[in-house]
Design a protein around this nucleic acid. Structure first.
Lengths: 338, 338
DNA sequence: AAATAAAATGAAATCGATTACAGTAGCTTC
DNA sequence: GAAGCTACTGTAATCGATTTCATTTTATTT
């Protein structure tokens, strides 16, 4: 079906080597020859076979991105940053949706081993540090967004979860809250752990005793947040604010409150994390923490491509970006101290 | 770095052919030999080189999906359907984000020509029918979601734009509206054209004269919808309802109304299209048209894989799915007839 | 115009897998 | 135990590009 380089060569009356030189604009080809070849290329609609090229060159100019859920704008925003920066450097990006399944995540990683792509960027991976380090040890290129994995070959970019979690709690305390619920994500996720840590630290700093009954898991999704709230209401424990470890869970909180006629922010303050696009559209607008998602993607991919090309490792491997608390209607209300 | 088949063969004391047979579980290998080989595979952490395999087999078991914007849930929902069905059939899916740029769309299509993937599914493509047909003519596998392209080799799945647009207008008329704005997307897009057609037909059926000053372009995105509304207000033309060709533009309508203190639905009814996730979260909830997005993706990819494998073309090439008008707060209000 | 240097081109090896075909070992049967 | 099968296993060609090295052509110098 497709024309091969040898067909182009025959048509142009030259050797395959010359065709290759023209197409890869190597030096040392007569303009006359070049024209002959280009004409043949056009006429045959020739496109070099990627498999043959990859095999010979031992590289694919391709980066894989493994996301947990492409329906979540947190991932797609980051991906846009990756994609655009990579595109500018002639790299193709293959987006893989692991759908929160560790098995799928692992499966997509094997495309790195079989050299379908030159490197893989994992966004908020659920695989263990050990498993990922092992792969990097073997010489494969891996980069991580949203977490730090201690390995000299793995570039990482992330925000300080502990820091912004403290800010969130500070903000709530400052508004008069002391009984603050923490809605956790997957308990195994590093993000969950660190955000919880920030929550605990802030409580301590404000001399508020930690109440384990105010911590619930919501698995980072809306229905998880909804269920968690219902469990809390069922327990009958008192609380005046909810800090959800991401916006998706906060949406579940909204839903649960709506059904029970609880008004936000007067009766319950809510803060999320991610600055998901939806957070601006709900009523009241959801207070949240913004990370420079697009930028994170762009920074890490640029670094990553450098690394793959030079096969060298610059001094800087860890990048941190600042996040910003966006106080909006869902928590901007001064409550009388109890 | 990586182990090759020849290394595995040496380690196991067999030939590369035997290793290949074991790995592709061909018949006729002694259990003893199989075990030896599997042991060597494990010890060397052998992964067959994808490029070599693709070159030899002349296929990649890979499908590309070209979406216009992965930040738009319309696309990601469809992609989930594609992805899951393809995964079940051992196909990998590469998601490409064209970011509403025709050039990028075209560029990603070349990955089909260079055989990086076996076939490409285009969701709501912006390329012309001619350009896409030409590619199919050359023997490449293309499938389309959201539009029909008349070509015997191109499977298509879509909803009847004209039909649901009429329903939307009917609904508005039934609620007492006669001055109904139509917010169009890209004027070149087939979706735009057909939705406009349905709008016009419904007006005619209800003996409402068409007023060209009530049609504005909004380019299918939020700021486009916002700008279009401001142009309409500036023109000072009377209207009581807006039919936006997608939900994104409807969000722009909400914004414009908010700024001018216009209440929805009492002063202005709004209906969108797509059942974007956000439409449920805004206040009032946005009336919209739902398409079975996940299903559309799943159906077309199953058909598409069949076609690529058999290289045959079953009788059925065109699939249509029904869409459903979801009447919600933004339009569910009876207006007095003027 | 001959000698030499420089530039353009081509022949053939290579990347790592699969597979048609050939070859060998093991088993059955007489 | 030899002949004839069957069932495994191995040899070598192949996929389609790139690139080294050798060769031919062109340009420069005397």
């Amino acid at each position: 079906m497709d024309a091969k380089i040898i067909d182009v060569a025959a048509k142009a009356g030259v050797s395959p080597a010359t065709v290759s030189r023209v197409l890869n604009n190597a030096s040392g080809v007569t303009p006359k020859t070049r024209n002959k070849v280009m004409k043949a290329v056009d006429e045959l609609n020739y496109h070099p076979n990627a498999a043959a090229k990859n095999l010979r060159l031992q590289k694919t100019l391709t980066i894989g991105v493994i996301a947990q859920d492409i329906n979540n704008a947190y991932f797609t925003e980051i991906i846009k940053g990756i994609e655009n920066m990579a595109y500018a450097q002639k790299y193709k990006v293959f987006i893989c949706d692991a759908e929160n399944q560790t098995d799928k995540e692992r499966e997509y990683l094997t495309m790195l081993m079989d050299r379908t792509m030159d490197g893989v960027i994992m966004i908020a991976p659920t695989l263990s540090d050990e498993e990922i380090c092992e792969i990097a040890d073997k010489g494969y290129f891996v980069a991580i967004i949203g977490r730090n994995i201690e390995h000299p070959r793995i570039p990482c970019i992330y925000t300080d979860n502990v820091k912004f979690s403290r800010q969130v709690v500070e903000h709530l305390v400052e508004r008069g809250h002391r009984d603050i619920v923490f809605l956790n994500g997957y308990p195994e996720a590093v993000d969950s752990y660190e955000r919880l840590e920030g929550y605990l630290k802030a409580l301590k700093e404000n001399q508020i005793p930690f109440r384990p009954d105010l911590v619930e898991n919501g698995n980072f999704n809306e229905s998880g947040g909804y269920d968690a709230m219902n469990r809390l209401f069922a327990k009958g424990v008192p609380f005046t604010a909810v800090f959800a470890a991401n916006d998706e869970m906060a949406l579940g909180v909204y839903q649960a409150c709506k059904e029970r006629g609880i008004s936000i922010p007067e009766e319950l303050a809510v803060v999320g994390v991610d600055n998901n696009r939806i957070s601006k559209y709900v009523t009241p607008q959801l207070s949240t923490v913004n990370q420079p998602k697009y930028t994170m993607g762009a920074i890490i991919v640029e670094k990553f491509i450098d690394q793959m090309n030079e096969n060298a490792f610059a001094d800087k491997r860890i990048f941190t970006v600042d996040s910003e608390l966006l106080v909006r209607g869902s928590s901007d209300y001064y409550r009388n101290k109890k």
